[in-house]
Design a protein around this nucleic acid. Structure first.
Lengths: 222, 222
DNA sequence: ATATAATTTTAGGCTAATCTAAAAAATATA
DNA sequence: TATATTTTTTAGATTAGCCTAAAATTATAT
């Protein structure tokens, strides 16, 4: 008996999924509230509802974890979001910093037939415009392997920019100003003690970036 | 001061627009309720709300009419709906009878940039897969001219099928069984007194269709 | 270990969109 | 024209999702 999942519930499940990527502990009420820009009390209400539907396991005061069916829905929502982002960039010529908000709406369209045909139409892309992997229709998602944050790279090493950990428009526009885009080859020249800022070389030009920026750049060492 | 319009309001405005196409009178509460499969009391509530927002003019017990801003929103929603239908059929290879429900969801995505880019991507189509005209971004819509219902055609005349007045899946599937699609050339052979059924010729084959079907076929005489 | 701080839950309200049932108004009919 | 019927509105509830404020629980720090 398939429960009907709405807009709001999908957003909660997606948020829980993202938050549970970092530690493998239960996700805290406050963390969810912050991530969704809502109040802890609202989160508690929703957790009880999702628990009743069997989408999360919830123990009072100890946060929640997605059940397998909850995770499947979260991954399907992420799949839709990322496919639509590819559509917007590849087919409608949007810039990569303009697609997030629109995809936030499109990800809630309910039709697996639509999602699967869109996937085919786009040529079964494996990554979205920000380098994030796209789950398949079974909710299987490719793990980043051999990737790390630019801030973790060793000095002198070469790497390729394969993803961003922040898809906000401000951040992406900022990257463009530094000539950084997916696929860019980067060499880490130096890291300064004082403010942890980095000196890098991109396209034969030396640039300086903050550690805040470097923390949001996912790279693959060469 | 731009009011924010939601999902539900868009649906009401669209329903009022459709209903006001036939007579040029105010649209009745009951008609709206029937069209949206809701109760008259709910409609009354919403009419008061839309009137406060300046989207309809409403006089108690005498139905409503769209204001110009209400009409603009209705037409924009219809524009989105029809563009998405073109996308689904032309790009994702959906059949014309499968697209309505999905387009009902997609029509509520809020982004004029998206709508306009989609329009361009699709090659600025003028009609949707059911032959319905697509309003432009100013809310201007082409009127059917020189069209009538097949049931109104005179016996012996030739015509082209340019639209359907019913986009339901059952109806469209039924048409396909009779080899009828947009662009089909039809000759009206006869109309039978008894049940008003019609004898027509399509692709050199003679067929019989009910008057119910003929009432839903929009044709252009040749 | 106990007090203090932080987090989480509960209790009680609010709003939007819906409903049912009753009242009011308009329309149709005898 | 008076009465019956239909339509519409109003009154009062309900539900989902959110809120604030208070209470309960857990975590932290002396």
């Amino acid at each position: 008996m398939r429960h009907f999942i709405n807009h709001t519930e999908e957003n909660y499940l997606k948020a829980i999924y993202s938050l549970s990527q970092k530690p493998n502990q239960g996700v805290s009420t406050n963390a969810i509230a912050k991530s969704l820009d809502t109040k802890a009390s609202s989160v508690t209400d929703m957790m009880q509802k999702l628990a009743e539907k069997g989408l999360v396991s919830y123990k009072k005061y100890y946060g929640v974890q997605l059940t397998s069916s909850g995770q499947l829905i979260a991954l399907n929502t992420i799949r839709k979001h990322r496919l639509w982002e590819v559509f917007l960039v590849d087919k409608l010529s949007f810039n990569w910093d303009e697609v997030h908000e629109i995809a936030e709406q499109l990800e809630h369209i309910q039709s697996s037939e639509l999602t699967n045909r869109l996937d085919i139409f786009l040529g079964n892309p494996k990554f979205d415009p920000h380098g994030d992997p796209i789950p398949n229709s079974q909710g299987e998602i490719e793990n980043y392997h051999d990737t790390l944050l630019l801030s973790e790279l060793e000095i002198g090493a070469f790497c390729t920019l394969v993803g961003v950990a922040d898809s906000s428009s401000v951040f992406l526009k900022h990257l463009e100003k530094s000539q950084l885009k997916l696929g860019s080859e980067i060499r880490l020249i130096n890291v300064f003690e004082y403010d942890r800022s980095l000196s890098i070389e991109v396209a034969n030009i030396q640039r300086s970036i903050s550690n805040r920026v470097a923390d949001n750049l996912i790279v693959k060492p060469l």
